[in-house]
């Protein structure tokens, strides 16, 4: 299968994630959509690694997975802290910092 097909799939996955970040209001689902965006980038990286025949793209994809795991851990910690303080788990209602 030609490399362009994988790139198109990665672009579509990335845009789906971007739309989800903008549409959804639950911070948990927003984190899930961020995962989608990172996975779209990962797919493009691995496709380019296949295209060039080098493994640097795959190493980059693995590092991106590490960063995504860190982001998930910190984000979920924030959500649990929000829930503990009995704040609404909804990004539209958390506008205290908005001037």
């Amino acid at each position: 299968m030609w490399i362009g097909g994988y790139l198109v799939v990665s672009a579509l996955v990335f845009c789906t994630g971007a739309a989800g970040v903008l549409i959804r209001r639950n911070p948990l689902v927003i984190l899930l959509c961020l995962e989608l965006m990172l996975n779209g980038a990962n797919l493009a990286l691995v496709a380019f690694a296949r295209m060039w025949g080098g493994e640097a793209g795959q190493v980059f994809a693995l590092i991106v997975m590490v960063v995504a795991a860190c982001e998930v851990v910190v984000g979920l910690g924030l959500i649990v802290a929000l829930y503990r303080r009995r704040l609404p788990v909804d990004v539209d209602e958390l506008r205290e910092l908005q001037g």
């Binding site: 362009g4 790139l7 903008l22 296949r50």
Partner: peptide
């Protein structure tokens, strides 16, 4: 607005990726 934005972004990315001058994109890889 956001679904429209996502569709526009997808179209733009697809045009950029398929219309690129990189020869390898239309090949099967190394």
């Amino acid at each position: 607005v956001s679904p429209l934005f996502a569709i526009a972004l997808a179209a733009e990315l697809c045009i950029a990726m398929l219309g690129t001058a990189l020869k390898g994109v239309s090949g099967k890889g190394a």
